[in-house]
Nucleic acid binder design. Structure first.
Length: 192
DNA sequence: GGTAGGATGGGCT
DNA sequence: GCCCATCCTACCC
């Protein structure tokens, strides 16, 4: 499969849940490597206490309140970086955590960045693994997803996907909210 | 097959 | 000082 067009800003300028669901099956590209997004989570504004934006605008969370279609990348547990896509119109909080990807292009490149991964299924089957495989760091925080080296494209041959909805993983607040979206049956997700 | 525990540092109280 | 939107290893069935 090859790449289609870059997703426009209007794609991201919608509700966070819509964007999280529609990102499934899209192609995430960074430099020489790319894969199909198979697992996402929505982090909402307002009363979603699991979101970093819940405490308002700070140096870290500023990008989440900014214009949609930008990357929010942060350090978690002192060691790993997580990639999010900013959604909602400017001024409103909301972002989508990219949790897992099916490797498609640049697989040898990604294997070098993920020496611990034994199987193809382990390359990007988690938010920290995915950023390692793609070489994404906080240097990409705030990057414009509609141009440059980090973009999301439509697939040229879209697959019909069935979406499984579950609670989000690894959080304490709002632990039962149904905001995790996975491609049902896909073997590259972090867990079914 | 499964899970408990440790690594490790930034953000915020 | 406490809390993490995680991953890997060791160890145990």
């Amino acid at each position: 499969m090859a790449f289609g067009r870059i997703l426009a800003r209007a794609f991201y300028e919608r509700s966070t849940v819509e964007v999280a669901k529609d990102l499934l099956g899209k192609v995430l590209v960074h430099g020489p490597a790319a894969g199909i997004i198979v697992e996402t989570e929505a982090y909402l504004g307002g009363d979603d206490l699991a979101s970093h934006s819940a405490r308002g605008v700070t140096d870290r969370t500023r990008v989440i309140f900014g214009p949609p279609g930008h990357a929010y990348v942060y350090l978690v547990y002192g060691m790993y970086e997580c990639l999010n896509m900013v959604a909602e119109p400017e001024g409103q909080a909301g972002c989508v955590l990219i949790r897992a990807m099916e490797p498609v292009f640049g697989i040898e490149h990604m294997r070098k960045l993920r020496p611990n991964a034994k199987k193809l299924e382990d390359l990007a089957s988690g938010p920290g693994k995915l950023t390692l495989a793609l070489g994404i760091t906080r240097a990409q925080n705030g990057a414009d997803l509609t141009k440059g080296g980090l973009v999301v494209r439509a697939p040229l041959e879209p697959r019909r996907v069935e979406i499984l909805v579950t609670p989000r993983i690894g959080i304490r607040h709002c632990a039962d909210w149904p905001l995790r979206f996975v491609v049902k049956g896909n073997r590259f997700v972090s867990k079914q």
